[in-house]
Computed example of a mutant assay.
Amino acid sequence: MDAVTIKLAGPEDAAKVLAFLRQAATESNAVQVPHLLDVSLEQEAENIKTINQFDDCVVMLAILGDEPVGIITVMMLADHPEVGELGVVVEKKYWRNGIGQLLVDEAEYWFENYSSLKKLVLSVFADNSPAIALYKKLHFKETGTAVEDGRPALVMEYQPEE
């Protein structure tokens, strides 16, 4: 089997990113991308291009062969520009194969070495115990609770050991 590689998403990846996210949204209710079906190829290419111009946002893809099997985003929170929110999506048939960990590791490295952000946070549905276990393993600590899409969620913050 081919190895999974991680790459920074570029505007040329827009079609594959949209197709991947639209497929993933049918596989999991954890994919929370507003207006996903309304985004055009041109809009997505422009979104990725814009994201790549800032050091407080990033989109990276896990690639197997030449197709994305996972994506990770860090987006600055509009009301807290010093905080980035982590989002992780892995294609369902590749769950529990280490791709999520690979992506989160890469995002943590980016956060520590390239980002201007002060905090890295995420929210995860409270019933998603495999994801919660992964995030805890990768130095995320519970900092609160929330309700997302009418469901209980945990808020977690990256807190690497000193």
Results as ranks from 00 to 15, higher is better:
Ala9Lys: 05
Gly10Pro: 12
Pro11Trp: 00
Glu12His: 04
Glu12Trp: 01
Ala14Ile: 10
Ala15Cys: 09
Phe20Leu: 00
Phe20His: 05
Leu21Phe: 00
Ala24Leu: 00
Ala24His: 05
Thr26Glu: 13
Glu27Asp: 14
Glu27Tyr: 04
Glu27Leu: 06
Ser28Gly: 13
Val31Ile: 15
Gln32Arg: 11
His35Ser: 14
Leu36Ile: 07
Asp38Lys: 05
Ser40Phe: 06
Ser40Glu: 06
Glu44Phe: 00
Glu44Gly: 02
Glu46Val: 02
Asn47Tyr: 13
Ile48Pro: 01
Thr50Gln: 15
Thr50Glu: 14
Thr50Trp: 12
Ile51Leu: 04
Ile51His: 01
Asn52Ile: 06
Gln53Arg: 13
Gln53Lys: 12
Gln53Ala: 13
Gln53Leu: 11
Asp56Gln: 09
Met60Tyr: 02
Ala62Asn: 07
Leu64Ser: 13
Leu64Asn: 14
Asp66Tyr: 08
Glu67Gly: 03
Gly70Thr: 07
Ile72Met: 07
Val74His: 11
Leu77Arg: 10
Ala78Glu: 14
Pro81Asn: 11
Glu82Cys: 13
Glu82Leu: 13
Glu85Ile: 05
Glu85Lys: 07
Leu86Tyr: 09
Gly87Gln: 06
Val88Cys: 14
Lys93Phe: 04
Tyr94Glu: 11
Arg96Leu: 00
Ile99Leu: 03
Gln101His: 04
Leu103Trp: 12
Asp105Cys: 15
Asp105Trp: 08
Ala107Glu: 09
Glu108Asn: 11
Glu108Tyr: 00
Tyr109Gln: 09
Trp110Pro: 02
Trp110Gly: 05
Phe111Leu: 04
Phe111Glu: 12
Asn113Ala: 02
Asn113Glu: 10
Tyr114Lys: 05
Tyr114Phe: 15
Ser115Cys: 06
Lys118Ile: 00
Leu120Thr: 09
Val121Asn: 02
Ser123Asp: 15
Ser123Asn: 15
Phe125Ala: 05
Phe125Ser: 07
Ala126Thr: 03
Ala126Pro: 06
